[in-house]
């Protein structure tokens, strides 16, 4: 990768790392919330739904600022985490993971929720009459049937995390080698005269990664769909 400068390479690798962890960490939480929203009947369900979707509607800068207020070193949660576990989000790559997770969360939950709602509960009843406990029903019937939604949600979340800019730059700034993700780097290069060539190279990489993610998701989704459609 000689044609990439160290700064650019750093940005690409950091973005991949941030997106990977953002996706992995959101996956179990996203699945749980998707189940709550699809199947749960509890007061405050609409509130939870709105809360999950909020980052989709709010300007990303606002989300980033709210994260800074809450998880920053002077924020209530941020201070607690630092005092108790020595864990810091602000101006670290972990903060970029948090920002990307929050921003990608609604897309992930939405895709999963739709696939859960599409599962016929009558199939789960049938599994119960055949002797399957709740855990086994989930593992052998529900999970395989919602697999396409999980795949779609995961890839959407990954792509969104790769492209996240506003909340990230507001929450963890734009420190090369520490918090400068690919979009932040493109932005930074465009701010200095003569940075267009570097920006263009990163833009090409961004396009390639996004296309690869889309193709993979299509392929996976089609294979899973074939498996579960029963044909």
């Amino acid at each position: 990768m000689n044609w990439l400068g160290p700064e650019e390479l750093d940005a690409v690798l950091l973005s991949l790392r941030v997106s990977f962890w953002a996706t992995v960490c959101s996956l179990p939480v996203g699945l749980a919330v998707a189940f709550l929203l699809a199947r749960g009947r509890f007061p405050g369900r609409q509130l939870l739904n709105s809360l999950v979707h909020l980052p989709l509607i709010l300007p990303p800068v606002v989300t980033g600022y709210l994260l800074l207020m809450t998880f920053g070193r002077n924020g209530p949660v941020g201070r607690f985490l630092e005092d108790a576990f020595g864990f810091v989000f602000a101006f670290r790559w972990t903060g970029a993971v948090l920002a990307a997770s929050v921003m990608a969360f609604p897309l992930m939950v939405r895709a999963m929720r739709l696939s859960i709602e599409a599962v016929d509960p009558k199939l789960e009843e049938a599994a119960a009459t055949l002797g399957a406990s709740r855990v086994w029903i989930f593992l052998t019937v529900t999970l395989p049937l919602i697999a396409p939604g999980i795949v779609a949600g995961t890839i959407l979340a990954f792509a969104k995390a790769m492209g996240e800019f506003g909340a990230t730059i507001t929450f963890v700034a734009n420190i090369p080698g520490a918090t400068q993700t690919l979009p932040s780097a493109v932005y930074a290069f465009l701010q200095v005269p003569g940075g267009e060539a570097q920006a263009t190279r990163l833009v090409v990489i961004a396009i390639v990664i996004s296309l690869a993610a889309l193709l993979t998701s299509e392929l996976l989704a089609r294979r899973v769909q074939q498996r579960i459609s029963g044909t």
Partner: peptide
Amino acid sequence: PVHRRRIGYVFQEARLFPHLTVRQNLHY
């Protein structure tokens, strides 16, 4: 609980598991 009643239930709409083969359905 339902899964311990050992009751075979044949529903009006079959309710076969679409992601499993006939053999896997039978052996479920």
